[in-house]
Design a protein around this nucleic acid. Sequence first.
DNA 1: GCCAACGTTGGC
DNA 2: GCCAACGTTGGC
Length: 151
Amino acid sequence: MNYWLCKTEPTSYSIDDLKRDQRTEWNGVRNYQARNFIRDDMKVGDKVFIYHSNTEPIGIVGIAKVCQESHPDISALDKKDNHYDPKSKKDSPIWFNVDLCFVKKYKETITLKAIKKDDRLKGIRVAQKGVRLSVMPIDTEHGRHLEIMTK
DNA sequence: GCCAACGTTGGC
DNA sequence: GCCAACGTTGGC
């Protein structure tokens, strides 16, 4: 079992939306490095920390699980979709997504500030300057710590 | 709303 | 294959 972190802007899709839906296709990722993680490495049962960016407070707001491994992202084929990519074709898709299932919402956000201050989370990528990856792996010991930080 | 840092594009 | 220009991300 591996840990991951997925960023989202709560104005477009929040932890509350996921709680309501219980399950969602995590689509719209248009970055090759993130795509590779999604396509090649995310497995059913992996735990995913949901991170709210561009909001107040910024930080990790809950946990989800991978409940379906990668499949082509059909939103890339839809001309009317915001994430439409003319380079992606039905028989040779470029973009992929996994399905995520809701696990829990933290009572309190683990803020980016708190993450940066916590010695046990030293080196965590999401706290590094200029990291724009929207999907990234989390070290096991960091993941374990994040899991027990809020009950 | 600003803007630094980054990824992508496209001309050469 | 370089790299300037551009668009986007995302913290502040």
